[in-house]
Design a protein around this nucleic acid. Structure first.
Length: 858
RNA sequence: GCCCCAGUGGCGGAAUGGUAGACGCGGCAGACUCAAAAUCUGUUGCCGGCAACGGCGUGCUGGUUCGAGUCCGGCCUGGGGCACCA
C-alpha cells in the first residue's frame, strides 16, 4: 500500500496522544515563582450525565487558550470539576428512584470519560465535586465566618408554595401560575430564611466594574443595571387619622406637586394590617400573592390596585391628602415598598391613574413643544424628559435637577426625610428547602435561639439514608438527622434542615482549585495568592449577572475574612454563544431528532425509517424538549475530537451563537484529513537543513507562512478563533500551490508544515502532535514554544489604493508603500477609468488617505 | 413589562469610518474512475450584457461625513437575563 492510500486513523491516534500526555504528566502544574502564571478556567458543568455541545464548545475554547498560553511560556493552571448539587438530582430521585448521590457520582464518572476523549489539557489531579463533604465542609466554615463578620442575617421572605405537594417551587417549576408536577395553583408563602449581605458591597461591586477591562462591555452594563444605583429621597407621609407614618422612596422629588396617589406593595405591613378588617382588600392581597415571585410575572401582569380608603398627607401641604392604594406593581423589595404616583411624568403612574380616574397635573414643562406634551399626556403618554418645574409653588422655574435638590433641601429642613441612595440589588437569599445541597451549619435551640454549629463539628454531613417517597424536604423527614443537642446549653435542639443555594458552591470553586487537597482549609493562602485572580474565565452569557455577581461578592467577603488577597475573581471574561440546530417536525406535529430525519427527493425531508414527510423549522438553541440535539459522543466517536474542536472554532466567533450543521462537521473532517495527507505525502529536505536560495514562488509562500504566524498569534490573543482557522487554511492552501520543482519550494513546504502543526496545536492537538512526529520534530509538540514570525518577511513594498469618485469605487492603483499624497493624487487623476467617471468635470476636492484610498470629489 | 445583545450572498461568517463578501459550507462545470465515493482544478452576491462594463446591494427608516456594514436618532425581527434551573 502506498502512503497515498493510507488513512488517518483518528481513534488510534487520538487515544495514543492522550495516553502520552497523561503518562508524561504534561498538564500537571504547581506554583513556580520564576514563571509567569496564567489561570484559565471554564465554567464547571452540572453533571447531568452526558456532555452536550455547549460543553464541547466551552471546553474547546478554554483548551485553546490554555495550550496557547502554555506555548507562550506561561505556567498555566487549567482545572476541571463538577457543580454537583442541584435540583435535577432530586428530580431523578423522584422519577427513577435513584439516590441523588449515586446518580450524581455515576454521572460524573461518565462525563469525565467523555471529557477525557476530547483531549483537554486539564490537570485532573485538581478535580473537585461540590457534593462531597471534602468540598462543602469549607463553605460551611465560610458561612460561619461570614456570620461572625456580620454578613449573614435571617429574615422572612416569600417563596412559591405548591399547596398540593407541600413544597417550595423554583420559578422554573411554576408554569402559568401552577406547579409543574401537581398543576395546583401556586401561592406565595413567607418563610424565615438566611441572607448574605451582598448589598453591603453594592457600591464597590458597581465601582469596580470599571476595573474589569477584559470583560465584555455588555456584561458590565448588565451588572450595572442589576445593581441599579439610584439617587433620590426617602420621605415620610403622615397618614390622616393615624399616628404612624408611611415611608416612601422617590427618584423624582421634583414632581411631588404632581402627586395624585400613594401606592404600597401588597405585602407591605400596612396592607396586611388593613386587610385584617377589610375583606375586599384581603381578597386583593391574596390575589397578588397568587402571582408568583418572579419579577417578569409581576411586571407583565395587568396593573391593578385597590383604594384602602386611607389618606396620606402631602409633605408640603397639610391640607392636601392623597388616596393610598395597594398596587400589584409596587415591589416590597425595592425602596420601602411604597411610592407616590405622579401620572404626568411616569408612564406606569399614568396608566394607573387613567385606570382609576385619578387625574394628573403637569409639573414639568419642556423647553420646546409645550403643547405636544399636554396632548401626549392626554392620549396616555407620560412626559419623562427634562424641563422646568411648573404648578409647583416654590419649585416653579427651576430645572428638574435644581428642583430635585430644592425639594430634598425642604424635606430635610422639615425633618420629613432625607437624600438617599437606593440600590435595586437585594440581599442574597441562600436558604433552600431541599435535600441535595450543602447543609446550613446552624442549630435551632428553644432556649438559645439560632446557634452556629461549632467548627470542630464540621462538616455537617448530608445523611445518605433518605427517601423521596413523600413531598417536602427529605432532610426534614429524616427520623434522627435533625435531632441534636444544643452546643450552648446541651438541651435537645433541632438542626437547620435548609441547604444552601447551589450558587454558593460556584462562588468559590475557582479558589479551591488552587489547592484542592487541603483538608484543613478551603485553600492554601500562598497557592491562592500565586494563582488568583483567574486570568481568563469562559462560559455562557446566561451567567452574565447572577453567578458572576455572586462570585464577585463572595470573593470580597472571603478577602475581608482573611481567606484571599484579591477582590475580583475573574480578571478576563469571555462569554460564549449557544449552539443551535435546525428543528424538525413530523406531519402530526411531533418533534424529531436530527438522526430520525433523512434527505428526501427534491431537497425535501423525510423520516429516515418510515419515509413520511418531515418539515424543517428554523434553527434554535439545542434543547431536549425540541429534540434538535446532536450528541457530542457520536461525533467524537465518528470523526474524532479534533474535528469536533475545529468545527467549534472555525465557523463563528465565540461570542455568537453557533449553528451546528452536518456539512460543517464534514468540512472540518475533510480539513483534518487534508492536513494529514499533505504532511505524509510531502517530499521534504531533512529537518534543520540550511535555507537554500528561494525562487519567487517559494519566497511568496514563505512570506505567507510568516504573515500567518504573526496573524494567528494576534487572532488567538483576541479570541478570534474563527479568523485564526481561516488564516491557517489560507496558509496551507498557499503551501499546496507551490509548484513542483519550484526553487527552494521543498524547504519552504517543510517550514510551512512545521508552522502549521504548531499553529493548529492549541485547536487540534492530536493531529498536531501526529504531524509533528511525522515531520521528525523534537520531543512532543505540546512542549514546543509558540513560533515567531520573521519581521523582515512581514513588510510589503507596494500597496493597492482604492480610487473613488464621489465615494464610488472606480479604480485601484498600485503604489510604493508610504508614497506621498501628491503622487497618489496624480496617479489617481491620470487613471483612464477615473477620467471617464469624472466625465470632464474638475475635481473640487481630493481626499488622500496614505496607503488606503483616494477620493475625488467633483 | 424592564435591562442587554444580534441582524451582511443560498448558508456560517470577514472587513482600525476608507476596495463589502477573507476563509469555509453549499451549488455549477471539468479532471481522475467501468461507475460511484473520495480527491484535485476552475467558477460562484444579485440584475442587465457575448464581453468590456454598468446598475443595485450589509433588517427598515432618517441623519452626520469627501466616504457609513461600522457613528447618531426612530422602528422591525430574533435571542439572553429578570434574583429558587444551572
Amino acid at each position: 500500500m502506498s502512503r497515498a492510500d493510507e488513512r488517518y486513523n483518528v481513534k488510534e491516534t487520538e487515544a495514543k496522544w492522550q495516553h502520552v500526555w497523561d503518562e508524561r504528566r504534561c498538564f500537571e502544574v504547581s506554583e513556580d515563582p520564576y514563571c509567569p502564571k496564567y489561570y484559565v478556567l471554564e465554567m464547571f458543568p452540572y453533571p447531568s450525565g452526558r456532555i452536550h455541545m455547549g460543553h464541547v464548545r466551552n471546553y474547546t475554547l478554554g483548551d485553546v487558550v490554555a495550550r496557547y498560553k502554555r506555548a507562550k511560556g506561561f505556567n498555566v493552571l487549567h482545572p476541571m470539576g463538577w457543580d454537583a448539587f442541584g435540583l435535577p438530582a432530586e428530580n431523578a430521585a423522584i422519577q427513577n428512584k435513584v439516590h441523588p448521590a449515586k446518580w450524581t457520582r455515576e454521572n460524573i464518572a461518565a462525563m469525565r470519560e467523555q471529557l477525557k476523549s476530547m483531549g483537554l489539557s486539564y490537570d485532573w489531579r485538581r478535580e473537585v465535586a461540590t457534593c462531597e463533604p471534602e468540598y462543602y465542609r469549607h463553605e460551611q466554615k465560610m458561612f460561619l465566618d461570614f456570620l461572625k463578620a456580620g454578613l449573614v442575617y435571617r429574615k422572612e421572605s416569600w417563596v412559591n408554595w405548591d399547596p398540593e405537594e407541600n413544597t417550595v417551587l423554583a420559578n422554573e417549576q411554576v408554569i402559568d401560575g401552577r406547579g409543574w408536577r401537581s398543576g395546583a395553583l401556586v401561592e406565595k408563602r413567607l418563610l424565615s430564611q438566611w441572607f448574605l449581605k451582598i448589598t453591603a458591597y453594592a457600591q464597590d461591586l458597581l465601582d469596580s466594574l470599571a476595573t474589569l477591562e477584559r470583560w465584555p462591555e455588555r456584561v458590565r452594563l448588565m451588572q450595572e443595571n442589576w445593581i441599579g444605583r439610584s439617587e433620590g429621597a426617602r420621605l415620610m407621609f403622615d397618614l390622616a387619622g393615624r399616628s404612624d407614618r408611611l415611608e416612601i422612596f422617590t427618584t423624582r422629588p421634583d414632581t411631588l406637586f404632581g402627586a395624585k396617589f400613594i401606592a404600597i406593595a401588597a405585602n407591605h405591613p400596612l396592607a396586611a394590617e388593613l386587610a385584617a378588617s377589610n375583606a375586599e382588600l384581603a381578597e386583593f392581597v391574596a390575589e397578588c400573592n397568587r402571582m408568583g415571585t418572579s419579577e417578569a410575572a409581576i411586571e407583565t401582569a395587568e396593573k391593578k390596585g385597590l383604594d384602602t380608603g386611607l389618606r396620606a398627607v402631602h409633605p408640603f401641604d397639610p391640607a392636601w391628602t392623597l388616596p393610598v392604594y395597594v398596587a400589584n406593581f409596587v415591589l416590597m423589595d425595592y425602596g420601602s415598598g411604597a411610592i407616590f404616583g405622579c401620572p404626568a411624568h411616569d408612564q406606569r403612574d399614568l396608566d394607573f391613574a387613567n385606570k382609576y380616574g385619578l387625574g394628573y397635573t403637569q409639573v414639568v414643562e419642556p423647553a420646546a413643544d409645550k403643547d405636544g406634551v399636554v396632548a401626549a399626556i392626554a392620549r396616555g403618554e407620560a412626559y419623562t424628559g427634562d424641563g422646568t418645574a411648573i404648578n409647583s409653588r416654590f419649585l416653579d422655574g427651576l430645572s428638574v435637577e435644581a428642583a430635585k435638590a430644592e425639594a430634598i433641601r425642604r424635606i430635610e429642613e422639615t425633618k420629613r426625610g432625607e437624600r438617599t441612595v437606593n440600590f435595586r440589588l437585594r440581599d442574597w437569599g441562600v436558604s433552600r428547602q431541599r435535600y441535595w445541597g450543602c447543609p446550613i451549619p446552624v442549630i435551632h435551640c428553644e432556649s438559645c435561639g439560632v446557634v452556629p454549629v461549632p467548627e470542630a463539628d464540621l462538616p455537617v454531613r448530608l445523611p445518605e439514608d433518605v427517601t423521596f417517597d413523600r413531598p417536602g424536604n427529605p432532610l426534614d423527614h429524616h427520623p434522627t438527622w435533625k435531632l441534636v443537642n444544643c452546643p450552648c446549653c446541651g438541651k435537645p435542639a433541632r438542626r437547620e434542615t435548609d441547604t444552601f443555594d447551589t450558587f454558593f458552591e460556584s462562588s468559590w470553586y475557582f479558589a479551591r482549585y488552587t489547592s484542592p487537597d487541603r483538608a484543613d482549609v478551603a485553600f492554601d493562602r500562598a497557592a491562592a495568592d500565586y494563582w488568583m485572580s483567574v486570568d481568563q474565565y469562559i462560559g455562557g452569557i446566561e451567567h452574565a449577572v447572577l453567578h458572576l455577581l455572586y462570585s464577585r461578592f463572595f470573593t470580597r467577603a472571603l478577602k475581608d475574612c482573611g481567606y484571599l488577597g484579591v477582590k475580583e475573581p475573574f480578571a478576563g471574561l469571555l462569554t460564549q454563544g449557544m449552539i443551535c440546530h435546525e428543528t424538525y417536525k413530523s406531519a402530526d406535529g411531533q418533534w424529531l431528532y436530527p438522526t430520525e430525519v433523512a434527505p428526501g427527493p427534491g431537497g425535501s425531508l423525510i423520516h429516515a425509517e418510515t419515509g413520511a414527510p418531515v418539515t424543517g423549522g428554523r434553527s434554535e438553541k439545542m434543547s431536549k424538549s425540541k429534540k434538535n440535539v446532536v450528541d457530542p459522543a457520536g461525533i467524537i466517536d465518528g470523526y474524532g475530537a479534533d474535528t469536533a474542536r475545529l468545527f467549534m472554532l472555525s465557523d463563528s466567533p465565540p461570542e455568537r451563537d453557533l449553528d451546528w450543521t452536518e456539512s460543517g462537521i464534514d468540512g472540518a473532517w475533510r480539513y483534518v484529513n487534508r492536513l494529514w495527507r499533505m504532511t505524509i505525502l510531502a517530499e521534504l529536505p531533512p529537518r534543520g537543513a540550511a535555507m537554500p536560495e528561494l525562487g519567487d514562488e517559494a519566497l511568496k509562500a514563505r512570506r505567507l507562512v510568516h504573515k500567518t504566524i504573526a496573524q494567528v498569534g494576534e487572532d488567538l490573543e483576541r479570541f478570534h478563533f474563527n479568523k485564526a482557522v481561516a488564516r491557517i487554511r489560507e496558509m496551507t492552501n498557499g503551501l499546496a500551490e507551490i509548484p513542483v520543482g519550484a526553487k527552494g519550494g521543498a524547504w519552504v513546504l517543510r517550514e510551512g508544515l512545521e508552522a502549521a502543526a504548531r499553529l493548529i496545536g492549541p485547536m487540534m492537538p492530536h493531529l498536531a502532535e501526529e504531524m509533528w512526529a511525522e515531520l521528525g520534530g523534537d520531543g512532543l509538540l505540546v512542549e514546543q514554544a509558540w513560533p515567531v514570525a520573521e519581521p523582515a518577511l512581514l513588510v510589503e513594498d507596494s500597496v493597492t489604493l482604492a480610487v473613488q469618485v464621489n465615494g464610488k469605487l472606480r479604480a485601484t492603483i498600485e503604489l510604493p508603500k508610504d508614497a506621498d499624497s501628491g503622487l497618489a493624487e496624480q496617479t489617481a487623476l491620470a487613471h483612464p477609468q477615473v477620467i471617464s467617471a469624472m466625465s470632464g468635470k474638475l475635481p473640487r476636492k481630493v481626499v488622500v488617505v496614505p496607503n488606503r484610498i483616494v477620493n475625488v470629489v467633483v
